[in-house]
């Protein structure tokens, strides 16, 4: 039987001590936030502690919080979120850390701990521009060869900056600034709490 989230959180706190900045249980899922300086150490403890044994790295992704609640966000802009699974003990954990510098978000690579993060770190680098120090092969992965910018940042327009077409005179594909106007059909709205509740 899997542990209840409360018991698991106690064990995580026991193993990590004061490295846990905040912790939260919602929808029976645990989220902890750790300082970026302890990133490598925390992950090694989570994998190697007998009672936790997070042996499978499920997902690693970047998040850009700059537009959260329409700009009400205070604090660092870029976060990296790690979703972990323990097959041995059958439980899950979510770990978040905020990168210290908004201009050059950088944190150590987890390649030594879970080799599975390889492509996930490349993806976070490609889409958010988060640099993983120590990654052996930090290339772009999903975007085009020679792409400029980091498309999943909130200040990158949905239609992008350039478009591509075939030029019959030059007889090759050329890039030019986008010609389509961005259009919002359904505006984004944040309502007050309990909006419309009966």
């Amino acid at each position: 039987m899997p542990l209840t989230p409360e018991v698991l959180l106690d064990r995580v706190n026991e193993a990590l001590g004061d490295k846990v900045l905040t912790s939260k249980i919602a929808q029976e899922q645990i989220t902890i936030e750790v300082p970026v300086g302890d990133w490598l150490e925390v992950c090694a403890i989570l994998r190697d502690t007998h009672a936790l044994a997070f042996d499978l790295m499920i997902d690693l992704c970047g998040v850009d919080y700059s537009a959260y609640k329409d700009g009400a966000w205070e604090g660092q802009r870029f976060a990296v979120v790690l979703n972990l699974l323990s097959i041995k003990r059958n439980h899950r954990l979510r770990v978040r850390t905020f990168c210290a510098d908004d201009e050059l978000p950088i944190l150590p690579s987890l390649m030594e701990i879970w080799p599975a993060v390889n492509w996930f770190e490349r993806e976070a680098f490609d889409l958010f521009g988060i640099v993983f120090d120590g990654h052996p092969d930090l290339r772009r992965i999903l975007t085009d060869y020679g792409f400029i910018g980091h498309p999943f940042r909130k200040d990158f327009p949905i239609s992008g900056h350039v478009e591509m077409r075939y030029d019959p005179e030059l007889k090759r594909v050329v890039y030019q600034p986008v010609s389509i106007e961005p259009r919002v059909v359904t505006p984004r709205i944040v309502r007050e709490d309990n909006y419309g509740a009966a």
Partner: peptide, 14 residues
């Protein structure tokens, strides 16, 4: 898996 962050809007935040 679907990892969803919502900030209370009518669209997912991430």
């Amino acid at each position: 898996g679907v990892y969803m962050i919502s900030d209370g809007a009518n669209k997912p935040y991430r």
